[in-house]
Design a protein around this nucleic acid. Structure first.
Length: 399
RNA sequence: GGUGAGUUACUCAAGCGGCCAACGAGGGCAGACUGUAAAUCUGCUGACUAUGUCUUCGAAGGUUCGAAUCCUUCACUCACCA
């Protein structure tokens, strides 16, 4: 049992520091039921969770299945600073109100994956608000600038002559201090968080907490573009609260290469199964498209249910395989004799009449499936289905 | 505090008095090819019923027939010195 648990814990991880400790904690749980704590911090900067977050959440869930209480830390205080990780420039500071709203939506979504009965939601403003200047200075004495500058992103910015605010220096310290307050046994995060995670260990030692947290890092999930990390600000994400159809369609649009990565980090399928599929695809027995459909179905199903996933698949196939028009497109009423470009803008599928003209010229616009080339066209009364490119549709009703 | 360099579209980055709605690259959108994949090729990429007009090159003023380009002030960024 313990061996199996550890195997599950190890799956897909990028790096584990102090695996012995994790092993001991799990073993103890299976011996006498003693639980332990796993901390994971979330910065409530963007309101919606996406698949990138679920990589961590799923790992937390695995821990919960093996005796862990999860300390879900909402970094409401630290969000006012902004995590400098991976940023090449000073981050914008959020106001408290937005942060609280975001934090609330986070919690609503998190329990799609986590077991609420084994989760403690904590806010770090609870102790950081009262830390005070004295406490902060005390904390700051425990680390020095040279080591802080060792951090990759700081170093780059420093050498590249870009600004680093003092507040950003404080960020890792404060995140580490959270681990002191929470007395976490284990903390998990993305590989980009390594520095911050290790800070937790460092500070737990400095404050004599009596233990040093083990650290487990998950790889960063690439976004839809396959290059940058999945993030809301880059717009290359699949949100878990998105419409089933969107989850399905977006998953299907990732490249074949990236698909394997998603399988490894997101699928519940065993690694052996995945390897088998990969082999079959290479041999030409299995079509990559079919494999990708499987992934899209699995993901859609996870956040909704089997029926919704099937429905999403059917809707997708109708539109793109059979070239049918989607059923649930929005309908807009417009005045008679409307200029086609204006109609496209009103229907919300073109941003401007200028853009509409260009697209018409390029043959990207269709009315009732028919390609048009006249950008001076006026619509007389009736109902039309307008289409721009492959995926933007609107129905307009002309009086 | 002093000295110097800089701030151009989504990002990077040219332009240094008219030929500038602004080179180039990336990104994005669209077309061809496909599996709405990737790769590749091509076109487009400020707005406006448009061979024209309007608004854009950190902000505000000024010089000029004419300014992204010159001058003044302000804001911000960076470097070196203190």
């Amino acid at each position: 049992m313990v061996t199996k648990a550890l195997e599950e814990i190890r799956r897909g991880t990028a790096e584990i520091i102090d695996m012995e400790r994790i092993e001991a904690l799990v073993r103890k749980y299976y011996e006498d039921g003693t639980t332990y704590t796993v901390k994971a911090g979330f910065d409530p900067t963007g309101a919606d969770l996406h698949l990138g977050h679920t990589v961590l959440l799923q790992k937390l869930r695995v821990f919960q299945n093996h005796g862990a209480r999860v300390q879900l830390l909402i970094g409401d205080f630290t969000a006012t600073i902004g995590d400098p990780t991976g940023k090449s420039e000073t981050r914008k500071v959020l106001d408290k109100e937005t942060i609280m709203v975001n934090a609330k939506t986070y919690q609503d979504q998190v329990f799609n994956v986590l077991d609420p009965s084994k989760t403690d939601v904590v806010f770090n403003s609870e102790w950081l608000d009262v830390l005070g200047a004295g406490g902060l200075v005390g904390l700051a004495t425990l680390f020095n600038v040279a080591r802080m500058l060792e951090r990759d992103d700081f170093e780059k910015r420093y050498k590249g002559g870009q600004s680093i605010s003092i507040a950003e220096f404080l960020y890792p310290l404060l995140q580490g201090y959270d681990s002191v307050e929470l007395k976490s046994d284990i903390e998990i995060g993305g590989t980009d968080q390594k520095f911050n995670l290790l800070m937790g260990r460092h500070l737990q030692r400095a404050y004599h907490v009596g233990k040093e947290q083990a650290v487990l890092m998950m790889p960063i999930l690439e976004g839809l573009d396959g290059v940058h990390k999945m993030s809301k600000s880059l717009g290359n994400y699949i949100g878990i609260a998105e419409d089933p159809k969107d989850i399905y369609a977006k998953t299907l649009s990732v490249s074949d290469e990236l698909m394997w990565r998603y399988y490894e980090l997101l699928s519940a399928k065993s690694l052996q199964e995945i390897m088998q599929m990969k082999e079959n695809v290479e041999k030409g027995i299995l079509h990559p498209k079919a494999v990708k459909e499987g992934l899209a179905l699995e993901l859609t199903e996870r956040f909704y249910n089997t029926d919704a996933a099937q429905e999403a698949k059917e809707a997708f196939d109708n539109v793109f395989k059979a070239n049918l028009i989607p059923e649930d497109i929005q309908e807009v009423a417009v005045e008679n004799n409307i200029w086609i470009c204006k109609a496209l803008v009103d229907a919300g599928i073109e941003p401007s009449t200028s853009q509409a003209r260009r697209d018409i010229k390029q043959g990207a616009v269709r009315i009732n499936q028919e390609k048009i080339s006249d950008d001076q066209l006026a619509l007389s009364s009736g109902e039309y289905v307008l289409q721009v490119g492959k995926r933007k549709f609107a129905k307009v009703k002309v009086d």
